[in-house]
């Protein structure tokens, strides 16, 4: 049931992209997303598409697997397209009843669809090739400078990685409680929205109680193992840049520069 969600879940295989330092992948993903908004011409999108295609190829993750993850966001994509298509003023192409499709609207809709799907595929390349753990490690290290502004970088990273560890456990628990309540005649499916919302109470109350109990236990277990925040802490797997990471930064810089040039000259 709930365990079938695969959007952006880590895909275990061996590839250059998998081996890259998570910081490189984080920076690259941000750069790629920004580049999608930098370029405004079709040439730019072609360049972005080529860049993305090469990354997917290098990642060794089957393209089919990536598309499967896309299914979850098809709905959002459709809404965006529809809104842009009908609500952009300009030169009318087709007019049905009170709805008009304009030339500008069509252009914008296609552009948004391309941007959005590139954005999602681009970020899923990162999540598919990086374990959640090294991702949080990378974030922690990248955001370290923010500590000056009293941002609790380590704590946030720790919370994220604990959340990731407990998601499967809580999903399983949800499944179990749901079944237990169904066995007592509960009905989670039929009825209108209000009834459905009401039907969630027997599921959510036990789930929250359990989550709090687990949080409490975990905090105690962490303290018992000498956890006292980020200070004095060493790392079992410290992040270190290798030659391949520096090369990757080079490629990234070249791509980004190209995007800016396209924006200026084309």
């Amino acid at each position: 049931m709930l365990r079938d969600i695969t959007l952006g879940q880590y895909y275990q295989t061996d590839s250059v992209i998998h081996k890259l330092d998570p910081r490189v992948k984080l920076v690259a993903t941000i750069c790629f997303i920004v580049s999608l908004f930098v370029v405004k011409s079709w040439v730019g999108y072609v360049v972005a598409a080529v860049f993305l295609a090469v990354m997917i190829k290098l990642s060794n993750v089957p393209f089919k697997y990536m598309v499967k993850g896309m299914k979850a966001i098809v709905f959002i994509l459709l809404i965006t397209v529809v809104f842009n298509l009908f609500l952009t003023p300009g030169e009318t192409l087709v007019s049905v009843w009170r709805l008009r499709i304009t030339k500008e609207g069509l252009q914008l809709a296609v552009m948004m669809a391309v941007r959005l799907s590139f954005l999602i595929v681009g970020s899923s390349v990162m999540t598919l090739t990086t374990t959640p753990n090294s991702l949080t490690d990378g974030m922690e290290k990248l955001m370290k400078p923010l500590k000056i502004f009293k941002v609790p970088v380590h704590e946030v990273a720790m919370m994220m990685s604990i959340a990731l560890r407990f998601i499967p456990i809580l999903l399983e628990e949800t499944d179990k409680i749901m079944k237990a309540q169904i066995a007592r005649g509960a009905d989670f499916e039929s009825g209108n929205l209000v009834r459905k919302a009401k039907a969630m109470v027997p599921l959510l109350v036990p789930l929250f109680i359990s989550a709090f109990r687990r949080a409490n236990d975990l905090a105690m277990a962490m303290e018992a193992r000498c956890y006292r925040g980020g200070e004095h802490r060493t790392k079992m797997k410290p992040l270190k840049y290798a030659a391949r990471d520096r090369a990757a930064y080079g490629v990234l810089a070249a791509y980004f520069a190209l995007c800016i040039l396209i924006r200026i000259y084309l």
Partner: peptide, 21 residues
């Protein structure tokens, strides 16, 4: 379930020593 912090066995075992520096 409520005392394993790491997402990989070896990382969990390393958690205590990490905290101790």
């Amino acid at each position: 379930d409520n005392q394993i912090i790491g997402q990989v066995v070896e990382e969990d075992v390393g958690f205590g020593p990490e905290n101790m520096g």
